[in-house]
Design a protein around this nucleic acid. Structure first.
Length: 470
RNA sequence: GGCGACGUACCCAAGUGGUUAAGGGGGAGGUCUGCAAAACCUCUAUUCAGCGGUUCGAAUCCGCUCGUCGCCUCCA
């Protein structure tokens, strides 16, 4: 394994060496469940998924943890607005997130800890901070991390704490703290807000402390990889490092990975500005989850990626091309001698694929290798140059690469009996060269969303989910 | 103001010192096919924001200029 990853901590691509040979502990900042996640959020989750899949494909035992933030200011605000308990709101959006993630074929994380179920872990961490003098209480029962007590602060974000701009933010801050830069690890109880009775008093956890407590709970005080969007570098991850290392006295995360923003119209996709699109919006316009996944993972994670109808349309076509060659390989039957050059072709493709992904998860050249292979396979299919066995080998090879990509096929799905019967009827009509009946059935099936293609290996069908027009 | 990323064809996007500047999409023409679709073939950047410099040689290194985006505050 020659994987190199760009560590935000150093700003450079470094060889990835797991703490424990053969095993990888990886944590990804997950969603705050007060609204549906947008596709920009999913870029970040799917980038982590791609990494997870690649590591696993390379034979590493990965433990992937993704948190669900189910208590925070916005959740409280929105629940109050709706007049429901926060648990009702978060259950709703957690379910939606899981459904969206599944449709996008995000590998289910090994652990998806919820903040509200780990308050004890957070309290224990805060107690450590208090004991070591890195945190202090304020009059309202809140507890703040004292940045002045942590000299390494600002290292991840390369921010000089003394040069931080402090302005309006200071006045608007609702809590009373010693230093404006200090951040809350614990928020004192307030009327109408959820509160936990704990060893450090009543209240609720701050946002940053949640990720520290839960990641270390499942991965230990020091673990391999932590991912998130670039917008989390500061202050979220910076704060995580400070409080985690201050509490344990040990290094926290070895490799920090941050993916660039998804852009729409040249600007960051962000809920705040309303410049967002959600998976449901994309599907409503006729694009499949597979096309969306492709659009989100097809560029290297550190580069900003332009998202929109153009990219979705391109993704839909690309994904169709992959599905088509697999269908053709599956249907292929020929009394031909084995193709002597096929093994070398597959080997070369695999080499290019691995080299590209090893290079900081550079998917573009990896996909280029796949598409070069697809063209070559189509050529050989057309020329009937493969044996039946070759076709099966090539299909299995592509499906193996797809364990990393997750873009090639829809979930296995059958056809309704009625449509199945129409297919058989059409095959019979074709056998007697009854073109009129054949064409009529093809039109009818098309109307039902099933596209027919006639090939030397017989008729082939596939469902049409992608929009023909945007 | 501080920190960082980036500007490659009609669109998306690789390439970061050396033969013909990946790949996907789109477009044009052609082949195959009962038709359709798919597939295949050919073409679609003598040029990499601009200007200087280093070098035998630069899209790739250096400098300047212009432009874009992000972070510094809740944010994937």
């Amino acid at each position: 394994m020659n994987l190199r990853l760009t560590n935000t901590l150093t700003g450079r691509a470094e060889p990835f060496v797991p703490l424990e040979p053969g095993r990888v502990g990886m944590y990804s900042c997950g969603p705050t469940v007060y609204a549906p996640a947008h596709v920009g959020n999913f870029r970040s989750f799917l980038f982590a998924d791609l990494l997870r899949r690649y590591l696993a494909w390379q034979g590493l035992a990965v433990t992937w943890v993704m948190n669900i933030t189910d208590v925070d200011d916005k959740i409280i605000r929105d629940a109050r607005r709706e007049g429901v308990e926060i648990g009702e709101l978060t259950a709703r959006y957690t379910a939606l997130f899981l459904e969206d993630a599944q449709r996008l074929r995000m590998t289910p994380p090994d652990v998806m800890p919820r903040a509200t179920e780990h308050v004890t872990d957070m309290v224990a961490l805060i107690e450590q901070l208090l004991a070591r003098g890195h945190a202090y209480r304020t009059g309202d029962g809140s507890i703040f991390f004292r940045i002045a007590s942590w000299p390494g602060y600002g290292r991840l974000a390369r921010l000089d704490p003394t040069q931080q701009r402090v302005g309006e933010r200071v006045e608007s801050d609702e809590y009373d703290k010693d230093d404006v830069r200090d951040f809350a690890v614990w928020k004192g109880p307030r009327e109408g807000e959820p509160s936990w009775e704990t060893a450090i008093g009543p209240g609720r956890p701050g946002w940053h402390v949640e990720c520290s407590a839960m990641s270390m709970r499942y991965l230990g005080p020091t673990f391999d990889i932590h991912t998130g969007g670039v917008d989390l570098v500061f202050p979220h991850h910076e704060d995580e490092i400070a409080q985690s290392e201050a509490a344990t006295g040990q290094p926290f995360v070895r490799t920090w990975l941050h993916c660039a923003h998804l852009q729409m119209g040249g600007e960051k996709m962000a809920k705040r500005t309303g410049n967002i699109e959600r998976p449901a919006d994309v599907y409503a316009r006729g694009y499949s989850p597979r096309a969306l996944r492709y659009a989100l993972i097809a560029a290297q994670y550190r580069a900003p990626l332009e998202f929109g109808d153009e990219s979705l349309r391109a993704a839909a076509s690309a994904v169709e091309r992959l599905a088509t060659v697999l269908a053709a390989l599956d249907a292929y039957r020929a009394d031909a001698a084995p193709d002597a050059t096929l093994p070398a072709l597959l080997e070369e493709t695999r080499g290019r694929f691995v080299d590209a992904l090893d290079d900081d998860l550079n998917v573009s050249p990896a996909l280029a290798a796949v598409f070069d292979l697809v063209r070559e396979l189509n050529r050989r299919i057309d020329a009937r140059a493969l044996s039946t066995e070759d076709a099966a080998t090539a299909a299995a090879f592509l499906r193996d690469l797809d364990r990393v990509l997750g873009i090639m096929e829809e979930e296995a799905e059958g056809l309704e009996a009625e449509l199945e019967a129409m297919l058989e009827e059409r095959a019979a009509a074709r056998a007697r060269r009854d073109w009129a009946t054949s064409d009529r059935l093809r039109d009818e099936l098309a109307g039902r969303g099933v596209l027919i293609e006639d090939t030397r290996d017989g008729q082939r069908w596939r469902r049409v989910v992608e929009a023909q027009r945007g």
